[in-house]
Design a protein around this nucleic acid. Structure first.
Lengths: 133, 133
DNA sequence: ATTTATGCAAACTATTTGCATTGCC
DNA sequence: GGCAATGCAAATAGTTTGCATAAAT
């Protein structure tokens, strides 16, 4: 039987408060400020369990840590190749993407993971030349 | 200046010989059989450099190790959630996918990473009930 | 001769796990 | 009271890195 521990509530609250795309590390940092005894293992366990229970969404990223999202509907993300941060992208979810597959060679596809890559606004700013000429 | 070391050639040959989706570990295992002195660090360094030089393709996977592909054209993959193996999917590459994005909030998208998930033929076989009834 | 690449080990990042103890139900 | 969850530390997986040495140019 699932138990309502303080830690579980704290982890959930942190994910909600951090709004979007928090890593386990960031959740831990947020929680440990007020609750210095919480352990990182507990944060990981609760994040995974909350995701399994459908209370948060786990976003698996190519390269780098997973993120956890308080938003439950499926949507796409863009990851900055410079700072590694993850951003929302406004685009319809392609529920029938699998129809574009001509041949999966017997593989039973049940989902997909799509992450855009590029440079976030802040990093564009940082690498922009000071003045041309 | 880039140097033509035996190790670099061995790593490239292993990726080509393993055909597709070999992990660094698998490449190392293949090379070390005939060359017991090669180190894993060297395999990683050469895989990354070969990918940078465009001689092989690095496939970053959500969850699990990266793969290296001797095929250079961009194409999509499916990863088995049970055994973790990576398979080719026959589907046109969506070069203009970014056009479906309505708002990336200033993020400069320059690419995308799409991996299908599901169950491979072998794992479907393994988990199939013996006989109904 | 120069300088990049190697081998080895250690470090590192992200995450999971074993186990004695705590604390929900 | 029973059993799931915690805290802690150690283990794990995947990968990178520092450094003395070796080898390619």
């Amino acid at each position: 039987m699932k138990r309502n521990t303080i830690q579980r509530a704290l982890v959930l609250k942190a994910v909600n408060h951090l709004r979007s795309h928090a890593t386990a590390e960031e959740v831990y940092d947020a929680v440990v400020r007020d609750h210095p005894h919480i352990s990182k293992g507990t944060v990981y366990r609760n994040l995974n369990q909350l995701a399994e229970d459908g209370e948060i969404q786990k976003l698996e990223m190519p390269d780098g840590p997973d993120c956890f999202d308080h938003r439950l509907h499926r949507h796409y993300h863009a990851k900055c190749s410079q700072c590694g941060r993850v951003f929302d992208v406004d685009m319809d979810y392609m529920t029938d993407l699998v129809r574009l597959v001509k041949d999966a060679h017997g593989f039973a596809i049940d989902g997909h993971n799509l992450v855009f890559t590029g440079v976030c606004p802040a990093c564009q700013q940082a690498t922009r030349p000071v003045l041309p000429g």
